[in-house]
Design a protein around this nucleic acid. Sequence first.
RNA 1: GGGAGCGUGGCGGAAUUGGCAUACGCAGUGGACUUAAAAUCCACCGCCGCAAGGCUUGAGGGUUCGAGUCCCUCCGCUCCUACCA
Length: 909
Amino acid sequence: MQQYDPHAIEPRWQAFWEQSGASNMRSDVNDVNGSPLPNYYALEMFPYPSGDIHMGHVRNYTIGDVISRYKRMCGFNVLHPIGWDSFGLPAENAAIKQGSSPAAWTYENINKQRASLKRLGFSYDWSRTTITSDVDYYRWGQWIFLKLLKMGLVERRNSPVNWCPDCATVLANEQVVGDGVCWRCKSVVQRKELEQWFFKITNYADELLQDLDTLSGWPARVRQMQANWIGKSVGAEVDFCFCKDDDSDACGIANSDTNACGIANENANANTCDGKFFSTASLKSNLEKITVFTTRPDTLFGCSFFLLAPEHPLVRELVCGTKYESDVVKVIESAAAATAVERSSGLREKNGAFTGCYVINPINGAKLPVWVADYILMDYGTGAVMAVPSGDQRDFEFARKYGLPIPPVVISKDDELYSKLAEERQLSITDVSWSEAYAGDGILVQSAQFTGMRGGKDSEGAKAIVAWLEERGLGRSAINFRLRDWLISRQRYWGNPIPVIYCEKCGIVPVPEEELPVRLPLDIDVTKGENLSSRPDFYQTTCPCCLAPARRETDTMDTFTCSSWYYLRYTDPHNSKLPFAREAVDNWMPVDQYIGGIEHAILHLLYSRFFTKALRDAGLLGFSEPFKNLLTQGMVKLNGEVMSKSKGNVVAPEDMISCYGADALRVYILFMAPPDKDLEWSQEGLEGIYRFLTRVWRIVHDLVGGACEDTLYAHHADSKTDEQQKDKAKDIAAATLQRERHRVVGKVSSDIERFNFNTAIAACMELVNAASDYLHLVHPQERLQNTAVNLRDIEVAETIVKLLAPMAPHMAEELWHGVLGHSAEESVLDETWPKFDPSLAVASEIEIVIQLNGKLKTKMMISKDASEDEMRNQALIAIANELEQLKAENKQVRKLVVVPAKLVNVVVN
RNA sequence: GGGAGCGUGGCGGAAUUGGCAUACGCAGUGGACUUAAAAUCCACCGCCGCAAGGCUUGAGGGUUCGAGUCCCUCCGCUCCUACCA
């Protein structure tokens, strides 16, 4: 027997798989009935080529490879592709640092990673490799951009955006993470007002949210995160009219003749915006009304002041030249200066200033002071808020700080004010003694004809008030989303050029489809700070409409646009007429199993869902969700810390392969933890797996018959002195091995289906242990001389090899061909997954447990088919002594609980 | 503040529906083999106890014949999210 030497075996089988196309799709193969094989699309998130692969990749791709190989052996036609997400900023930074070009750096890393992936023996269909920075790929990204533009899903507009000063580019909302820092370089993001390109993902907000319910194969956590990100709120819009009153009280409290929390006056309300209150003379914008969004229209009577975000465009206009200007500007400036660090401090004190202006509460005509407040966000809702201090903690704190009234409007039945306000309908309480706001459900008070109704989100009172507003055109029910449109333009070189042209006469003109691709010039010298806007030969062009000189867009697309549809291209990677043929995508999609890191829970996974829906509406494909099942794998850590180059705590996959081989690394990473949990690296653990593989190697050899001279096993057998005992032990070991073979096949199959690779491997170890026990007792000559026994042993060996084939494929091939002597052309991958007989997976005699009042008393052997009566009777005999004793204490058997083939519980009292 | 999840030996972890808690492995201890070491093989390996036996899944309570698993309260840890009107 040769020693197990992964370094001799592995390159040989990698070459074999590549030459024979063993991992490619099998569209031409039929099943035994002549029908085409069912499809299975297994996909792992493709890598970004930043240096060589790391352990996270190994884990991700090993999981995907096991699933692919397993499904293939189960008779599926498996699509298992790989590619590279190769546009992006790190390439530019690395090129600047090394004095090379982004393209050179990128493709060098791709080659390095490709070699490593091959060294790990992953079963990719290399003929479908897709690299996003290849013009054959990105041209179709441009094509899709134009398609979405035509559909009205792309927009160029002025907007407050996130600017990363280090990356010198704008970022999407999703790319601002943690305490408001850039997702990539972690520098603090600034807010800027710029004209940029957006994908209108908000058009799909509702569908993106609703369809999460159809994704039962996704982790609940990811669905929850997406739902939170989309952030749907149901409520109402309410229109407030401006009222500029120069005589008003400077402190902002309503005049005594205007009841701030007054009862609705039907007559006055019908026309609150008459000349009496309303004067827009000094408002340049001539704005008459301002709309707010609220989730609590039921609290409208409790609105005692009105708030604007510091960034609200109206604010400066309102205070310009007034005595309020300096205080308001202070608030604006301090809010603008507040960095993300301050914003995240949680218990930040709220600051604001009175603007000198008033609005009219449409429900009761109350005159409300308009304040600017730094806790109002410009990019949520309308940037204006109706403040209800009794019902919202933030408004409450603000009101207390600035002495604004806090009239109760929705109160709990437990509140001492309840009887007075809700039952006796007493009115005019402008302040509460509460220490905090009451945001829960309750009863409406001080709300005119609505008093006494139930209040709360979507309550009777809320509906009635919205209906009242709707009738008069003063408000309407509304839904608001937290999701913003996706900002996709980047002021960077190494990306997909946005295919539009700016013409002085014609405006924004899309590049005509036949002129695609807009090629990214490769000779740009980023080390000299060049980018597309420093290259006239790139941007100088003529307008496709009027042929006048025009300028190309020099921004590129966010790299996330590239990764939003690569999984579609894999189904038809060489199509030169379209990004993909509809037939191909509809045949393969949605992806049956997608595997990747949780860090993409929102970014990539949300964008891809949006792309799928948009492309569906473009008629390019016929499904609504890209990924049917999603597995988010945990991280690989060392001493509790994420491995990273900057920390210098990286365990390099290449080093581990050089030492123990790819199979050991693969099996180790599967065995150490369930795939969705973090994995703590342990060198001893890897060595243990290497030992296990060595053991498998030897035991498979020995089962087949090569152990004649090996005395390892005989030694143990000889130590048994009693011949009869020895024979009995042999029989038991042989029977156990057969039973284990059936049990373990069942266990490994269901474990792989459920991605419990760690327990699948544990089960394989149990089978190997059973085989080892058997080999210790039965001498090789004894086994080889009996043909039936030898065949049975070979069957066990084949089972072990097949069960391990998805996880340790190189060793499996070597044993399959070398020791088990199968044909040289056929990969073990093309063998069928082993079957098992559940009835042979249990012994005829099984051990059951006898409990007394739920406590384990004894165990006994009983036939596996024993009836409940039989179990009951046997159990009573087994604990007869105890029962006798208890009888003496006047206790008797009250109940017998029988769980077939498991236990009997005797209940005595 | 809000949301999600987790808590089992010295360590990684197992226990699919409520039914023998600690599978499998790592580390450790003893032994065989060896001139010796490594490798390999065998045995032991939750805690207390000399033993019989008792105790044990973060703590406490509940439901149940029976709870690591279900319910309630508390403690601890992790992740996400954060002034979302």
